[in-house]
Amino acid sequence: MSDPHLLRQGAEEIAAPFPALLVEAEHLATTVLLGEHGRRRAGLGDDFWQYRPALPFDEARMIDWRRSGRADTAFVREREWQIAQSVILWVDQSASMSFGSRTDGPTKGHRAKVLALAAAVLMLRAGERVGLTGLRLPPRSGEGQLLRMAALLSEDHDVDYGAPEAGGMLPHSRALFVSDFLGDIAPVEAALTKAADRGVRGALLQVLDPQEEAFPFEGRTIFESMSGSLRHETLKARDLKDRYLARLAERKDRLDTLARRTGWQFSTHHTGDSGAAALLWIHGAMERRS
């Protein structure tokens, strides 16, 4: 398990050279100052939008006690401006992300977490509200949100491949998904389709290890998933190279096509490359108007 404070430190080091990230600056200015945006027309951004069930991280002052008094569950009242400034992150924490071909280099999972937290640092500095998908951590601003996010991202899951969650994505908010996207693509397609239906736009960042791009294997080789549940042995690994690279290229093309069809952006980052370069791409992708 990664130390959340070390993850935060690494994230801030990568984020330091860049200006504060403004997600859809023109859209937010219109929303907050003029009260106009794509999903409905409001006043100056203070109009009520919806109630949602309170979660463990919600403070007592955020609970609407009048609404909660009519049910057995506590509810939080959310307003227009809070939704307009919300960015939801999904970071793959599956076993597949724990792969790293170099002992002196980062695993895919560590790089993904650092990049996601670095992006969160930029967005929070810009006044955005950032959270995690699946209602694990509702979008919020403030210093404490980074610590809560780092703690949750420090957890690792024992499933072979991760699947993004569409839950918790507020209408017309923004989202960032970070994964190797090597598992079943159906959940990715379902999540982006659901996001598009809600007017959510964002970016997919695929994080791969250099070995996964080069496939430098020859002779007798045993391929095993990081969880140990999948295993394949071959005497002629080199014979698999062309088919493997073709399937990897096909997966990238499918992700890129899916992103374009749903109004998202897609890119691939390698753990052997600069983390700052990947963050710069996120910066640009999250600023683009859909």
Rank of each mutant, 00 (worst) to 15 (best):
Q206C: 06
A95K: 01
L192W: 09
T30E: 11
L279A: 04
I282M: 07
S229E: 15
P210I: 02
R125H: 09
G183F: 08
D72G: 11
T271H: 02
A126T: 03
E12M: 09
I185A: 10
P56W: 08
V32Q: 05
A166Q: 01
R102Q: 15
R66F: 11
A285I: 04
S96K: 07
L170V: 03
A60T: 12
R198A: 02
I282N: 00
T193P: 00
L137W: 06
V200I: 04
G183Q: 08
L176S: 04
R66P: 07
V207R: 03
E12G: 06
L33H: 10
L44D: 04
R77L: 13
M149Y: 06
I83K: 04
L255C: 00
K194L: 06
G284S: 07
I88M: 12
V159A: 07
P210H: 01
H37T: 12
G45D: 05
L132V: 08
R77W: 05
A237T: 10
S141D: 13
E218G: 03
L205Y: 01
T133S: 15
G219V: 15
G131W: 05
E78K: 09
S68A: 08
W49K: 08
R77D: 11
Q50K: 15
R140Q: 15
E24Q: 11
A15D: 09
A29T: 11
I88G: 00
L137H: 02
A116C: 08
G263H: 09
A195F: 03
V159L: 13
H269W: 03
S290A: 07
S225C: 14
K108N: 12
D197R: 04
D64R: 12
L117Y: 09
R129L: 14
L240M: 15
V32S: 03
Q9M: 07
R77S: 15
S96H: 12
R77G: 03
D242Q: 10
A190V: 04
E78G: 02
L153E: 11
L147M: 08
H172L: 10
V130G: 09
S96W: 05
L89Y: 02
G131I: 05
A84I: 03
G263T: 08
D160L: 13
W264S: 01
K108H: 12
A25C: 00
T268S: 07
F177I: 14
E13S: 13
V32L: 14
E24V: 01
K194G: 10
W264A: 04
E250C: 05
Q145V: 10
R231H: 10
L124H: 02
R288P: 00
V76C: 11
S96M: 08
R52S: 10
A16W: 12
T31S: 15
E78A: 13
Q82Y: 02
Q265D: 07
L28H: 12
H283R: 13
E36L: 06
T257H: 12
P17S: 01
A259R: 05
L34Y: 01
R148I: 09
R66I: 05
S225H: 15
G43L: 11
V76S: 10
S68I: 07
R111K: 13
L146G: 00
A195Q: 02
R136M: 06
P53L: 14
F75P: 01
V87M: 12
R111L: 13
T193V: 03
L205N: 02
V76G: 09
P164I: 05
T262D: 05
S274G: 13
L170Q: 01
L22N: 04
M169G: 04
L117R: 03
